[in-house]
Design a protein around this nucleic acid. Structure first.
Lengths: 209, 209
DNA sequence: ACGATTCTGGACCAATTGGTCTATTTCTGG
DNA sequence: CCAGAAATAGACCAATTGGTCCAGAATCGT
């Protein structure tokens, strides 16, 4: 199962009829970009993986490849914020949630042979600022995720400014550990990050002013 | 001045005679990749920026673009470990050093209009595992940097395993904050990371067993 | 001075790139 | 049942890709 699916249970359109072309394009594009990066994936390959003809791509995304990237970023950001919102209203404690995020990423890396990185991270590192549309989508999406993390920390009793700082820390740490883990082909950095997040950052003693 | 130069004072070949072609190629390649990523920079552009003909590239780097990437990674990793080694034997305290790293990166981002990311980070996010040579160079280079950071923490009184963990934390945090800052076009994440590193991670009370 | 080696310069190549365009098919509301 | 819209299908394009190849220039050791 694709990691996106983990986050999306319930968001997916109900029936299991074949995904419409537009969604298949976004899905194929996301997978390929996470493996190889934006510039390295050609439209031809996306089309092949999605089993769609050229015309469909430019019908659904008149601005072409960059439009597809914008849609993929928006889709992913929404999926992540939805999942975080669900976690916020759920019962699980912060340490459990945070360590879970880190180990889920570690498992993902292992399962895919260290071949995939998170969409927003991958795009952030190659697209800014040559593609203003994508850069803007990344900015908006990233801000939404930060805000969702801040809400999560606040809902667990942290003061607003501490929550905001912890949101940044959590994102930076998970993101950087993911990149490092990919480079080192080892989950050490991610597990280390999970440990820190669960035992220190989420420590009730640090709920701040 | 280029950020690489900051790290290299003293490593540069002495006189200011024009850099040899091979070095110019590495330099041009590094700059371009940091801005746009590996796949997006064409050999033609590297050649133009380096003012070198096509033949020179394949003379100095018989394996072409990927060989150039490997050389650039090795060069960068050495520059970074050298700088860390100098810091280790130097006098500055850990908090000063760590906050300095974060704010140097923040300044770099601002100066370049959020257009450049660290070479190893950028490559790690798009090259693994399709280019095994580059992946290997990244793995080796990243390990060397981790080790240099571990030495730094140990030289400041941290126990070996704590030092190793702190090295991972520092790298993950700086790296992730860099990516986030680029996406958000704001240095918030980096400054937050610097603050944490200086006031918490480097805290002498946490020198561990 | 000279032969050998290193390096530069650039023409050239097949393959691929993102994108355009139009004909046809499929779907939908009335 | 049909008109019109939505979507699919793929031929086609100029531009660019990384890479090969070889002729000439510069540099070297002797």
């Amino acid at each position: 199962m694709h990691p996106i699916d983990d986050l999306l249970a319930g968001k997916q359109n109900s029936g299991n009829r074949a995904a419409p072309t537009r969604d298949r394009l976004i899905r194929a594009f996301t997978d390929l970009v996470q493996q190889r990066g934006y510039a390295a994936v050609g439209t031809a390959e996306v089309l092949k993986v999605a089993s769609a003809p050229r015309g469909s791509l430019y019908h659904h995304f008149p601005s072409g490849k960059s439009g597809l990237a914008v849609a993929a970023v928006e889709y992913m950001a929404e999926a992540v914020t939805d999942a975080l919102h669900r976690a916020t209203t759920g019962r699980r404690t912060l340490p459990v949630l945070l360590r879970g995020m880190a180990s889920a990423r570690a498992a993902w890396l292992k399962r895919t042979g260290w071949s995939e990185g998170p969409l927003l991270t991958v795009l952030s590192n190659e697209v800014v600022p040559h593609e203003p549309d994508i850069a803007e989508a990344l900015k908006v999406g990233s801000a939404a995720i930060n805000s969702a993390f801040t809400d999560l920390f606040m809902a667990r009793g942290f003061a607003p400014d501490t929550a905001w700082r912890n949101a940044h820390m959590t994102r930076s740490l998970l993101d950087g550990a993911m990149t490092l883990s990919r480079a080192a082909r080892s989950t050490d950095a991610l597990l280390e990050a999970g440990d820190f997040l669960a035992t220190r950052l989420a420590d009730p003693a640090n709920r701040g002013a």
